[in-house]
Write a protein that binds this DNA or RNA. Sequence first.
DNA 1: TTAATATATGAACAGTTATTCATATATTGA
DNA 2: TCAATATATGAATAACTGTTCATATATTAA
Lengths: 116, 116
Amino acid sequence: MTTCDHEELHHLAAEAAKANMPGEEDVGRVASVFKAISEPSRLKILFALRQGEMCVFHIVEAVGGTQSAVSHQLRILRDARMIKARRDGQNIVYSLADEHVLAVLELTCAHLNCKI
Amino acid sequence: MTTCDHEELHHLAAEAAKANMPGEEDVGRVASVFKAISEPSRLKILFALRQGEMCVFHIVEAVGGTQSAVSHQLRILRDARMIKARRDGQNIVYSLADEHVLAVLELTCAHLNCKI
DNA sequence: TTAATATATGAACAGTTATTCATATATTGA
DNA sequence: TCAATATATGAATAACTGTTCATATATTAA
């Protein structure tokens, strides 16, 4: 690969792509959002929280796995601002961070023709 | 953790969550779609292809990295049906698989308030 | 204060993944 | 057919990620 004598059309697209490419930082931010919802165990937690807020005990009940594993995943989802937590006595009650989270999930599934 | 004497409300949510939890297979399918677009290098390729179809040479030019690395990522995006390819002489020309891909990207960015 | 419950977390390990390097395949022009 | 160009790919390595195990923290009830 040294040069590419391809049609001028594609070259212009490449120029435009380079010019309009978001910075590393922005790309990373978008990627990290998708990454947060790209793991089955985390996705299950989000699906579970569609029903409303729940404490860890019940999340574990709903999604399976160990308390520790779920707790670690909750931390990741929380860091990604997809869920929020509040303490209620001995329990920590989790819920979806805002309506955008669910919207992204459902819109994506609809667009990609996933029956969820 | 043995029992959870939490409010009945949360318990009902847990029951509903378990009942409405999609099967392992469906969750995995959704997760794999998100995974395909959760890596910065792949995300850049998709952003580049917003401008229109491009051959590998120009994609490399637009997103950076080596030809080999880009080619590997193109394979992954193609396997995930997010991009499609056609041969044009010596070149392979790639483009977004359909309008849904772009829609998901843009909707997500809009919802998450990412200026992309 | 002590015991029990609920949740979080650090370290270690296993599995996964992105990149690199070398090389292979395919197309074109001479 | 041969050389050059464009792209793909297998293997190896390094980095990352999810789970487990043991343990720590925080709250409540006794």
